[in-house]
């Protein structure tokens, strides 16, 4: 069983790498060449990923426990959410170029975190799966928003500098990216809020008021996303500023996950 798990993990990682590379090719060279295989390869990768999770669950612990499982779930969630979102409009297809690397990054993080994935028993509670699940869904939403925001910033910059070459031609319209990002952030924000509150008060009461870098990152992400939404509603902030806020928010959320991986692998 263990070789199966290892093999599937490796296969999934390779498939994601391939999909990410193909998306980058289609971003730079256009979706007509080799890039047209990006989406099918990504679907294949997701299938492998599901198989990996299934086999791993049978062989291992229950899912959603420990940072490794959370990260693999996250990575799959991002991919599935993207694949679903692109069903609704081919226009955002190219966002795969930004999202697939994020999914790959999470999967790699899971690989690092695999060695130690037992959650210490004193923080194990009935609410732990809820806490992890809600946060994971939130991060998936933010990852989608991050992809859109990155594309927005790149495209806006090219438009301002009047560099309207290959990549510019292939990105979706600014307005589409802006709306997509907003929707993803408004979806992720309540989830993140519940996630943080559940973490502070129910799951982690022992460490709750001891501000670790992880808590700092979580708080920063929350403040940033709150700012993005609030300023948009109150002052109509959108476009570049909202996109930069979204990117920073996602990076902070990423910081939380990095913190978990480091703690669980004993680096810190």
């Amino acid at each position: 069983m263990a070789t199966w798990v290892g093999g599937l993990f490796l296969g999934t990682a390779i498939a994601y790498t391939l999909a990410a590379a193909l998306y980058l090719v289609s971003l730079v060279r256009g979706a007509e060449g080799k890039g047209r295989f990006a989406a099918p390869v990504l679907m294949a990768a997701a299938t492998l990923h599901i198989a990996y999770l299934a086999v791993d669950t049978l062989a291992h612990t229950t899912p959603m426990q420990g940072i490794a499982q959370t990260l693999t779930f996250l990575s799959l969630g991002i991919v599935l959410a993207f694949l679903l979102a692109r069903l609704r409009g081919k226009g955002i297809d190219i966002l795969g170029a930004f999202l697939t690397p994020v999914a790959l990054l999470f999967l790699m993080g899971a690989g690092v975190g695999r060695s130690v994935d037992a959650v210490s028993p004193d923080v194990r509670s009935a609410l732990l799966p809820v806490h992890i699940g809600v946060n994971a869904l939130g991060i998936i939403a933010f990852a989608l928003a991050f992809g859109a925001a990155t594309a927005y910033v790149i495209q806006e910059r090219m438009l301002r500098r009047k560099k309207l070459g290959g990549i510019f031609q292939r990105l979706p319209p600014l307005d589409v990216l802006d709306n997509f990002g907003l929707r993803a952030v408004s979806l992720g924000f309540p989830l993140l809020t519940v996630g943080i509150v559940s973490g502070v008060f129910w799951v982690d009461p022992v460490e709750s008021f001891d501000i670790s870098p992880m808590h700092g990152f979580a708080l920063a992400a929350w403040v940033l996303f709150a700012g993005v939404l609030l300023l948009r509603m109150a002052a109509g902030w959108r476009g570049r500023r909202a996109a930069i806020g979204t990117i920073m928010g996602f990076l902070c959320a990423l910081g939380v996950l990095v913190g978990y991986v480091m703690r669980d692998t004993g680096v810190s």
Binding site: E32, L159, L164, G166, P173, L174
Partner: peptide
């Protein structure tokens, strides 16, 4: 598909509307 022959518009008014589409969808 193998060359970029059909890429980019070449008249001022079509460039204007292409850019508008790029901004507003």
């Amino acid at each position: 598909t193998e060359t970029g022959i059909a890429e980019g518009t070449v008249s001022v008014s079509s460039i204007a509307s292409q850019l508008a589409k790029k901004i507003f969808g």
